[in-house]
Amino acid sequence: MSKQIFVITEHLRGKIDDVTYEMLGKGKELAAASGGELVAVLLGHNQKELANEFGAASKVIYADHEKLADFNPWMYAKIVSEIVAQQKPRVVLTAYSSMGIEVAPAVSVSQGISLTAYVSDLSIQDLKVSVVSQIYGGKMNIEAVDENESMIACVLPGSFPADAGKATGSPAVEDFAVSGLDESKIQFKKLIAPDKSDVDITQSEILVSVGRGIQSNDNLPMVEELATKLGGAVSCSRPIVDSKWMPKTRQVGKSGLKVKPKCYLALGISGAPEHIEGMKEADLVIAVNTDPKAPIFDYAHYGVVGDLFDIIPALSAKL
């Protein structure tokens, strides 16, 4: 059985995503425990120099092709599957991200290997892998063991420190021969940049952020009033954007923006891992939620179990 640990790296517009360093840091720890080597897998075009960012790994497998310049779900899944099939590593780490969510299940089915998602922690002993998943919106931890030959873990961003995986150097680069990308039924057309016409919430020092608890867009004016009085901006969690109550530019979290304000007021936000990923660096987090078990209270500095429809007007009145 292989002792290798693989990390499927991610980059967008030439920039490595932090979750890649988080996985490399964790991967290094796993490789030390398994007695195998840590291998970073990099796909791209004319981007070999990115391998130097992966000094934490002892080797980088690099697949270069003009069609891999931008992420393509079918092509990336196909190439990663081929690399995994060739090496059968004990553990493959992918991110629970827009890219990882396409690659991990595809590799699992095509290679017949086990997949565990929403992973917040994992360890390895005698090649037996213990893995913790955070599911039900972060409200439940599930511990599992994997005793298979090979497994994929789809890792929640923000679970491990990125610094542990940040080491520049010149790891050995092994080129992977790419072929068979001509038949793709999925063609990348273009990358559209974020809308810059709205308030940039990443620059706001104070964010009044609302979630599902706001119940209706009719209730947004009182939130705006509070934000104005505090000299801040209104942001929100994903369901509010999916409901079209607020624009995408205001969304905090996985598919939205990462923010680091001086103060983050989380009103009616339960704190699913996807949201926490975007706001846990805030200097001061005050959360208001009716559910005392809401995961947001595990990340907030101060918590109020209460109804935001009582708290917002009462606070506004004081300002």
Binding site: L12, R13, D17, D70, F71, N72, P73, S97, S98, M99, K185, I186, Q187, F188, K189, K190, L191, I192, A193, P194, D195, K248, T249, Q251, K254, S255, G256, L257, K258
Partner: peptide, 13 residues
């Protein structure tokens, strides 16, 4: 298709 940070990719399928 959405990525983080408000980036969106267009694919033709």
């Amino acid at each position: 298709k959405e990525y983080g940070g408000g980036n969106v990719a267009e694919f033709e399928c």
